[in-house]
Design a protein around this nucleic acid. Structure first.
Length: 473
RNA sequence: GCCAGGGUAGCUCAGAUGGUUAGAGCGCAGCAUUCAUAACGCUGAGGUUCGGGAGUUCGAUCCUCCCCCCUGGCACCA
């Protein structure tokens, strides 16, 4: 079996923040789970670089656009390494191969008769170099960035995509479950959008307005593709679309697109329509997670509450952070992040429960010779929960076992037993702990490996604390 | 404004086709205690009884209506 999962490709107009880390970790857990099952697995993310915002951000930083992208893409890759994300492909959209792949996708849609030219008229703010809809403006009809500056009515010829043609078809695909969207709230939002009056979308802009940055429209050098048209195609270009047919056929379609809730429409509607038009296969499922708030508020530079995940890794071990993301954050709704809760969780769950269980088990087994551990596989419940994107439920289940083992030790008191009985009891405990470690592999790879190595043989020695108490308090 | 989902212990949340003393984890207090990172385990306090009001019902936190508050979504953000 093959398994192909993608995380969204972030805009690289700034350094990564905690939300990016949250998404990468979730994807990594699912990908690792499938690798451990023996699936031929691929986990892809990348960088979305062909947007005007990137050009503007580069200007502001006084850097060349490519140089700016390289630098920020580097920050993201550093984060991935820091979080122990096993990513197979980091596909950047400024890559030449990606450009070619996107032009090919365009041509396929064009061949289906779904791309046409039309006059577009809109309110354009010269300061922002952006078009605005009426409801995005203040009461004077000016943009918030440049009050006092009148917007211009600009008319130009752009390419449009016949989204309207596919609305009904997509609605049916979602309703009958061919395209799975989780969680249900998001699915309903998409469906209600599709039941409305779905209009065609503009998919290009003039080269001038795009600041000469992005993917050129085939056979029309005066136009650059709208960033979303090419960005979504990273999911294909990263696995060989347009360049390596056999790789592409191996991996496409994606099994899971993991995204933030804010970009659900692009994935569940635009992207699906483009693929239908191009007569390509559709992804199997889309999972939209919620956002992280900090102290109850959205992260924003103006509020100054942006958390750099790399800073957090100075304070907490990687696995502790990964654990926190899964155990304390809701995967479907927004959830709040605080350092205090992170500390409490570390103390209560990791040091006191799992870490302590490992210590006492190791000590009690110190002078015993146990049988060879049995071969391990995932607990059914854990596997089912991961497949349902219920990562928190899965780890809850694992922790129930941890608590159970601690209680068993306290109740049975093996330290007071004769060697033979003690051996029997401790074999059970040791095997239980190994099962915990096995199930924990996708979530906390380092910790799981340490446990599996330490307890995976008949004799064992004391273990140094997995999560030392004084590390950060 | 419209649509959806919420408002339950200090905190994060679970709950039931409506029915005896409303639950968990964390935090807190006490007991006990090294096999263990004084961790684990046990006991307990804590909800004016489940946002406010009215209604349906023998009976509502769970149903209906109204109100208040929160969160999210609301199309070309190009």
């Amino acid at each position: 079996m093959k398994f192909y999962i993608t995380a969204a490709i972030p805009y690289v107009n700034a350094k990564p923040h905690l939300g990016h880390a949250f998404e990468f970790v979730q994807g990594d857990i699912i990908a690792r789970y499938h690798r451990l099952l023996g699936d031929n697995t691929r986990y892809l993310s990348g960088a979305d670089e062909n947007a005007l915002k990137i050009v503007q951000a580069a200007d502001k930083a006084g850097k060349g656009v490519q140089e700016f992208c390289d630098e920020n893409a580097g920050h993201f890759q550093k984060l991935l390494t820091g979080l122990h994300i096993e990513l197979d492909t980091f596909q950047r959209s400024s890559d030449k191969l990606h450009h070619a792949a996107s032009q090919q996708l365009w041509k396929l849609c064009e061949n289906s008769g779904d791309i046409y030219q039309k006059q577009y008229e809109g309110l354009y703010c010269v300061g922002c170099e952006t078009f605005y809809a009426k409801d995005e403006l203040n009461e004077n009809g000016e943009c918030f960035e440049h009050p006092g500056k009148k917007l211009e009515i600009v008319t130009e010829e752009n390419y449009f995509f016949r989204l309207s043609k596919y609305a009904n078809q997509i609605k049916n695909l979602i309703e009958d479950g061919t395209l799975r969207i989780e969680p249900t709230e998001r699915k309903n939002e998409v469906l209600s959008f599709l039941r409305g009056d779905v209009q065609d979308i503009s998919i290009s802009r003039t080269r001038e307005r795009a600041r000469n940055w992005g993917v050129e429209v085939p056979n029309d050098p005066s136009q650059i593709m709208y960033v979303w048209f090419d960005a979504l195609n990273v999911y294909q270009s990263g696995v060989g679309f347009g360049t390596d047919e056999s790789a592409y056929n191996t991996w496409w379609p994606a099994d899971v697109h993991l995204i933030g809730k804010g970009i659900i429409r692009f994935h569940a509607v635009y992207w699906i329509a483009i693929l239908l038009s191009a007569k390509l296969q559709l992804p199997k499922s889309i999972f939209a997670h919620g956002y992280i708030t900090v102290g109850g508020q959205k992260m924003s530079k103006t509020l100054g509450n942006v958390i750099d995940p790399l800073d957090l890794l100075q304070q907490f071990p990687i696995d502790a952070l990964r654990y926190y993301f899964v155990r304390e954050m809701s995967t479907s709704e927004d959830s709040d992040f605080t350092i205090e809760r992170c500390r409490t969780t570390y103390q209560a769950h990791l040091a006191n429960e799992l870490g302590n269980l490992a210590s006492r088990t190791a000590k009690l087994c110190e002078d015993l010779t146990l049988h060879q551990p049995p071969p391990l596989s995932f607990t059914n419940t854990v596997g089912e929960q991961i497949n349902s994107f219920k990562l928190r439920d899965a780890i809850d289940h694992i922790w129930d076992r941890v608590a159970g083992l601690n209680k068993t030790l306290t109740d049975i008191k093996p330290w007071g037993l004769a060697a033979a009985e003690k051996t029997t009891v401790m074999q059970g405990i040791r095997d239980g702990l190994l099962q915990v470690a096995f199930d924990l592999q996708p979530f906390m790879p380092e910790t799981a490996r340490t446990l599996l190595e330490h307890f995976g043989k008949p004799t064992t020695s004391v273990i140094k604390p997995l999560f030392p108490k004084q590390a950060h308090v």
